[in-house]
Amino acid sequence: MQKERLSEHLRRYYEEQQPSEKQMEQLLEMVETIPPEATGNNNHSTGSASIVEWLMRVWRGPARPLWLASLFALGLFISASLITNSGDITQLVVQEISLNHNKRLSVEFPVETYAELSQQMNKLDFMLRPSARVDGSRYQLLGGRYCSIQGRLAAQLKFQDEAGEIHTLYQTLHTEALTELEEGRVQQNGLNITLWNEAGLLYGLASPVSLP
């Protein structure tokens, strides 16, 4: 057996450690929901003077009507972007929930009632509450675990329905950072994800997409 430096063994060991391809894809998808300047890849090298000169040249040129139409379209696009800007935080939360659901991690606290779960998950800064929108008679609680939503401590509750399908319900405090979040249902990564605000808590339900 050959002798090697300890640092070489360490390098080899850590290089073998990789995130799963699925997680990698999902994290990369998230990058598309943020403005490009956050990736630090902007290369604006044109000076402001040359931009003005170029604009003036274009404005005086024969394609003036075409540029007017383009400016109008751009204006419409910017207005639409401003209106739908609140979708960013919603999209981030949806992606985070789908990522948490698809990890299929086992529960840390295997209990069957909210009362027991609340008692055991005592590090939460809110009280776990069943939602009026989730029909308790259709779902069997399997337990819960800690997770996070947008950097805030949250609870992931795992349920099983009569057909044996697994659903995960997320609860966290509905803070100011989530005020822009839109309620509703979207499909993401093979899941139906429903977000709603109820009694000061943000709820997110992830269910397999084949279900109604």
Binding site: Y14, L27, A38, E96, L99, K103, Q150
Partner: peptide, 27 residues
């Protein structure tokens, strides 16, 4: 290297990534 646990490492990476994107931090 911090957690020595694959699941916790994935959780940490996810949290940090989301937070970096959310605050518009440079990747």
């Amino acid at each position: 290297s911090l957690t020595h646990d694959k699941t916790r490492a994935e959780d940490l990476l996810q949290d940090a990534w989301v937070s970096t994107l959310k605050t518009g931090g440079v990747l």
